[in-house]
C-alpha cells in the first residue's frame, strides 16, 4: 500500500507550481554557484564537477527543508491526515510512501543537472567513476537531509516552523564536520572525540564520494540516518 501514497505525493509536487519553482531555483542557483568566482569552474581548468558539487551540502540546507516541510505539516493543517489514517494503510507505509516520493523528487532535481556532465564531457575527459560516485553520494545525502525534514514536519502543523526546525537540525549535522569547528574541538578534546563528532556530519561522509570513493561506512551512515529519522517519524505520528 506504499504505491498509492507515493504516487499521490510525487504527482502532488507537479499539481502545484511547487515542483517548477523548486527545480528551476535549485538548478539555477547550483549552476550559478559553480560558475561564480567562489566555484571557479573554469579557473580550476579541470574536467570535473567538484566546483559544482562542493556547494551541495549548503544548498541542501535550504532546499531540502523547502521540499520536505509540507510532507506532514500540510496534512495536519488541512485535516487530510485524518483521512489518510482512516484508510487501510499502516503508519509505516504512509511514512515510507511520502518519504520515497519526496526523495524521488529530489533525485529528479539532482539528475536534471546532467547538462553539467555533458559540459565537462565536451570540454575534457572526466573521470566517470568519480562522477557516478558523486551523483550516488549526492542522492544518498539528499535522503539523509530529507529524513530529518520529514521528522520535523511531523512535529508541527505549521510549515514555517517545520522549515526552520529542519534547517536548524540539518545545519547542526553540517557544521559538526566543518574544519573550523572540528579544529576547535580537537584543540580542547582528544582528537578521537573530534573525529567521533565529525562522524555525525553530512560533510564528512559526502566528501569521500566526491573523491570517487564509495565507502560502505558512508553509505551505511546515510541509510541509518534515514532509518532512524523515519522510525522516529512513525513514533511521532502514532503517539
Amino acid at each position: 500500500m506504499i504505491t498509492p501514497v507515493f504516487k499521490r505525493e510525487f504527482l502532488g509536487y507537479f499539481r502545484s507550481p511547487v515542483a517548477y519553482v523548486f527545480l528551476i531555483a535549485f538548478l539555477v542557483i547550483s549552476v550559478a554557484l559553480a560558475f561564480s568566482r567562489y566555484g571557479g569552474f573554469y579557473r580550476a581548468n579541470l574536467a570535473s564537477l567538484d566546483a559544482y558539487f562542493q556547494f551541495y551540502p549548503w544548498l541542501f540546507l535550504f532546499l531540502v527543508p523547502a521540499a520536505g516541510m509540507r510532507l506532514w505539516s500540510e496534512e495536519k493543517r488541512s485535516g487530510t491526515v485524518e483521512l489518510l489514517f482512516t484508510l487501510p494503510i499502516t503508519t509505516l507505509e504512509a511514512v515510507l510512501g511520502k518519504f520515497l516520493a519526496a526523495w524521488a523528487f529530489l533525485t529528479l532535481g539532482i539528475l536534471l543537472s546532467f547538462p553539467m556532465v555533458l559540459t565537462v564531457a565536451y570540454l575534457g575527459d572526466p573521470d566517470w567513476g568519480v562522477l557516478i560516485a558523486t551523483y550516488f553520494g549526492a542522492i544518498l545525502m539528499a535522503g539523509g537531509y530529507l529524513g530529518v525534514c520529514s521528522l520535523m514536519s511531523a512535529l508541527t502543523k505549521n510549515q514555517v516552523i517545520s522549515f526552520v526546525l529542519s534547517l536548524v537540525a540539518c545545519a547542526v549535522l553540517v557544521f559538526l564536520g566543518l574544519s573550523g569547528f572540528t579544529d576547535t574541538l580537537a584543540a580542547v578534546f582528544p582528537v578521537s572525540v573530534a573525529d567521533a563528532v565529525s562522524n555525525f556530519s553530512f560533510m564528512t561522509h559526502f566528501d569521500s564520494f566526491t573523491k570517487g570513493i564509495v565507502d560502505p561506512k558512508d553509505v551505511v551512515f546515510f541509510l541509518s540516518l534515514m532509518g532512524f529519522t523515519l522510525f522516529l517519524n512513525v513514533v511521532v505520528l502514532e503517539r
Binding site: 499521490r8 485524518e82 482512516t86
Partner: peptide
C-alpha cells in the same frame, strides 16, 4: 470495514 466522513470533509484540494 468502515467508510468514514471526517468533520468538514477534508480532501486533497489540488487534486
Amino acid at each position: 470495514k468502515i467508510g468514514y466522513l471526517p468533520e468538514s470533509a477534508p480532501a486533497y484540494g489540488e487534486m
